[in-house]
Design a protein around this nucleic acid. Structure first.
Lengths: 221, 221
DNA sequence: AGACGAAATCTACAACGTAGGTTTCTCGGT
DNA sequence: ACCGAGAAACCTACGTTGTAGATTTCGTCT
């Protein structure tokens, strides 16, 4: 119905396609996503898309790139310490993930080499180095931080888009300790939980830096 | 050719199917995996599989369950401290992941509720609690640890099954710090790297326990 | 022998990704 | 005002996928 009469330039370009693809995945999920459905959404023939994007794999790349670009860059302001930068970046990442839960698996799965991602990492490691952290600790930091972020967010977001917790009622007699701890896991997916775990990760980095006997100003914010 | 003549009981059951599925994914990858190919492999009609497993989703569940069962249970011996248990479990998990790199995305994506997984967690949290760590720290530990494990292993294993590093040559002029640190990321995917990052995570947990002023014996192995 | 439930199979369909060829629009040079 | 070139959109077609539904065959018990 909305399909263009043949030949008229429908104003298709990579950006418009990516935006529509993100919207479609947000709505119907990754499983249901496909070239044909996307074409329908755009009111366009499936094959038209191939003139701008090479194939489905490239389409998925475009989606994750577009979503990643939404991550608010953590204050370019260099006056913040590395922990501040790391925390801001992590929270921005989390918020974007929550905004596009269905897309997130793509982010966690694909190696991110886009300029935005690299620029963010560069800012972080630079700040860490200036704070005097040992080089090896700084070199490991991106993997440590984003490994944790991706794994944690994946776990949290896999629990259905609805709202029900993902914990499937633990049997108290066979797993007594876990059952006893269950109440403390009430805020599953909450910012508070995120902050606690993020704090643990950053604390671990700081701790390792101290142990390795880094530069001058290892302690403090 | 290997196809059974119709009707003979081919001795199909959930276990045999899962084993063949794992082998198939190991060989051809997740993308190429499908019900029909699996049926071919088993010398069986595609529809036969549906008599033992409800659909493709359930098939993927069976795969990840089978692989997870391979994880060597960390010494049931209760004489070890929680850090020992955590470390052993993490290494066993890593080894299984490396044995089935193509399957791993399934493990990281799906919420694990199988008895083996829960039993392992129960052992860990029990040991942590006995060591006197604060309840909230213990409650967060599984997410912290497995979040990190899944995220890190996902990143490492996504770099093609071959052996080439995943780092795509960083431009030294636009990202000077990262370029300077590149040599220190040489052993990408190595046990040493894994140990460093695992140590950071465990250190973070210990640190947080100390800060929260836990029970009696917070310090030490 | 005959009946019954479980297991394996056959048939069929809608949806998918995309290669190859054809039509139509846009636009600069004359 | 015309034309030719190149890009953008489209149509057709093929092989493959997941799986619903009906059908056949087997092993087992009476």
């Amino acid at each position: 119905m909305a399909r263009r009469t043949q030949g008229t330039s429908a104003g298709l370009d990579r950006e418009r396609i990516a935006a529509a693809a993100v919207a479609l995945v947000d709505r119907d999920g990754l499983e249901r996503f496909g070239v044909r459905r996307l074409a329908d959404e755009l009111g366009v023939d499936p094959m038209s898309i191939y003139h701008h994007i090479k194939g489905k794999a490239a389409l998925l790349d475009a989606i994750s790139e577009a979503v990643l670009a939404e991550v608010a860059p953590a204050a370019h302001d260099a006056s913040h310490g590395w922990q501040e930068i790391a925390s801001r970046t992590a929270h921005a990442y989390r918020e974007t993930a929550y905004r596009h839960p269905q897309v997130f698996p793509l982010l966690a799965t694909r190696a991110q080499t886009s300029p935005v991602a690299l620029a963010a990492l560069e800012r972080l490691v630079t700040a860490m180095r200036e704070a005097g952290l040992p080089d090896q600790v700084v070199a490991d930091a991106p993997m440590t931080l984003f490994g944790f972020l991706n794994g944690y967010l994946m776990a949290v977001l896999s629990g259905g888009s609805g709202g029900g917790g993902a914990m499937p009622a633990i049997d108290a007699t066979t797993y007594p300790t876990m059952a006893a701890l269950a109440p403390l896991q009430a805020g599953f997916g909450s910012v508070e939980e995120f902050d606690r775990i993020l704090g643990t990760a950053l604390g671990g980095i700081l701790d390792r830096a101290r142990a390795a006997g880094g530069g001058h100003d290892v302690r403090s914010v």
